[in-house]
Write a protein that binds this DNA or RNA. Structure first.
Length: 488
RNA sequence: GGUCGGUUUGCCGAGUGGCUAGGCGCUGGUCUGCAAAACCAGUUACGGCGGUUCGAAUCCGCCACCGACCUCCA
């Protein structure tokens, strides 16, 4: 089996991936907070970890992929005294909180499907795990790493740091954190500004709240991931992924909570995808510079020169390494669109190739280089570059300038679409055409051919112009005329 | 201010000591009634200044600029 190396944020190095309980692999990824439209930034972790999920399965692992839906616990303001984000939005729109949750969850699912990401094995909701979260609060209290104050329960970072290492993931030091912490309102209840809520008392305006021995309230944001990952993957599991912006404080707090409750770190490999930038700046909800996936697919945002298909978006992301920032621009997206088309054309051409007596180049080397790339910390840009090399060979074989024997060609024909579709998750959009449309176009093209045969180029050009206006692209080949719908 | 990361050819984006990344664009060519498309070929860059080395985009030092996190954020 090909060895897989992944970059572990904990060690800041590439490490060989060795599952705790082979052949099973536990993968947890921080999912969306469902209170607003999903934007381009949300697509990145989804695609990054979809690639990981697909590749792990390809390697023969039995993967349980858990991705949560955050539907409670996010706070609107700086301090933990803020209002639950979902509750506030609900009040503004006169909707039930769970109605908002359902709406954006459905929308997220639709988008993820169009990006061709596989659904996770389990998609737990935070609101469905209040009991478990309360139980973890009790456990942390019992182990004396938290304290109750004014109906809320706070994690005692200083006390924790005396026995363990708060900052093990992010590289932060508690004294630095202290000197840099802003003075915020509503912090009086905490012993230290570093402390974070694991249970928060709700004020009377708060809609989403649950009873507990401490107060009517709701669990702290960081708690849900600790609880749900433990519940479905065990106290120790293989991979935890998420956006780089969650590294601190979210993931640091998760580690602290797990250690405080269970005595040991839960995660073996931490993986973080980098940000999408726009004009060199992070795309983020709070910065207001984000482009939603709806806008992208429809081309409606003012920065967009055209619509971009979900597959273009996926390919665009895969052409950059997941740990690098990726800058959005129309130019880059258009380049991705054309490149992807070239890739699909290559796949189509490959299908129709026939073999020769002997091979003029080594296809096994190319295939191996693709797998080597993807095994090296999911280096999809290198893998794609190798696939483009393969496309060049496909076209050269078609032109009779290179050749493959039967075995080699069969291996090529098996490998190429498999890797493209099953591993990279790139598939051509289903054509909107049906048989009737296709037959009609074929008929029209036959008439055009008749005109061409009679050298009636006025008529043949007229037909071509009309078809182009209708969105049908004409490609006159040597023997026959090919056509396709112009990509939207 | 602290911590971490980045600066690659027209654009996007890989690459960690010697050997063409790749895509888009551009230029040339093939095919074609023309066009379009497609295909083939060409397109050698690594922020600045020093250092290490036979040899550096790649290692070290300094400087400049950009960004992320430190507060909700994928």
């Amino acid at each position: 089996m090909q060895k897989l190396f992944i970059h572990n944020t904990l060690s800041r190095k590439k490490e060989e991936f060795k599952p705790l309980n082979p052949p099973n692999v536990g993968l947890y990824v921080c999912g969306p907070t469902v209170y607003g439209d999903a934007h381009l930034g949300h697509a990145r972790p989804a695609i990054t970890f979809d690639l990981l999920f697909r590749y792990l399965k390809h390697l023969g692992f039995k993967v349980r992929y858990v991705r949560n839906i955050t539907d409670v616990g996010h706070l609107e303001n700086d301090s933990d005294a803020g209002e639950d984000k979902i509750a506030q939005k609900a009040r503004l729109q006169q909707l039930e909180p769970m109605e908002v949750v359902q709406f954006f969850t459905n929308q997220y699912h639709d988008h993820m499907k169009s990006l061709n990401t596989l659904p996770p094995s389990i998609e737990p909701q935070a609101s469905g795990h209040i009991i478990e979260q309360q139980s973890m609060v009790r456990q942390i209290l019992k182990n004396d790493f938290a304290y109750e104050s004014g109906g809320s329960v706070y994690f005692d970072v200083e006390k924790y740091n005396k026995k363990h290492n708060y900052g093990i993931l992010s590289g932060r030091k508690t004294d630095e954190l202290l000197s840099n912490t802003r003075q915020l309102e509503g912090q009086e209840e905490k012993k230290s500004p570093m402390d974070f809520a694991i249970w928060k008392k709700a004020d009377e305006r708060h809609i989403m709240k649950w009873p507990s021995e401490w107060s009517e309230g709701f669990p702290g944001w960081h708690l849900e991931c600790s609880v749900m990952s433990t519940k479905y993957l065990g106290e120790k599991f293989d991979i935890h992924g998420g956006g780089l912006d969650l590294l601190f404080p979210h993931h640091e707090c998760e580690i602290a909570q797990s250690v405080a409750a269970n005595g040991e770190e839960a995660v073996k490999y931490w993986m973080h995808n980098n940000m999408i930038t726009i004009n060199g700046q992070k795309m983020g909800r709070s910065l207001g510079n984000f482009i939603t996936l709806d806008e992208l697919f429809a081309g409606t945002h003012k920065l967009l020169e055209q619509a971009y298909s979900p597959m273009t978006i996926r390919f665009f992301m895969l052409q950059a390494h997941y740990r690098s920032t990726l800058d959005f621009s129309n130019h880059a997206l258009q380049a991705a669109e054309k490149g992807l088309e070239r890739m699909f054309e290559g796949a189509k051409t490959l299908k129709g190739l026939s073999h020769s007596e002997k091979s003029s180049f080594n296809i096994t080397d190319i295939i191996n280089s693709v797998y080597e790339a993807i095994s090296d910390d999911l280096n999809s840009p290198i893998a794609i570059a190798k696939l483009f090399d393969a496309v060049r060979y496909i076209n050269l074989i078609k032109d009779g300038k290179e050749s493959l024997n039967q075995d080699d060609l069969n291996a090529f024909k098996e490998f190429f679409p498999y890797f493209l579709v099953e591993i990279l998750g790139l598939k051509e959009a289903e054509s909107s055409s049906n048989n009737l449309t296709a037959e009609l176009i074929e008929s029209i093209l036959e008439i055009r051919q008749e005109a061409k045969n009679k050298k009636d180029f006025f008529t043949s050009d007229l037909i071509r112009d009309k078809l182009i206006l209708a969105g049908v692209e004409i490609k006159d080949g040597k023997d026959k005329t090919e056509w396709k719908f112009k990509s939207a």
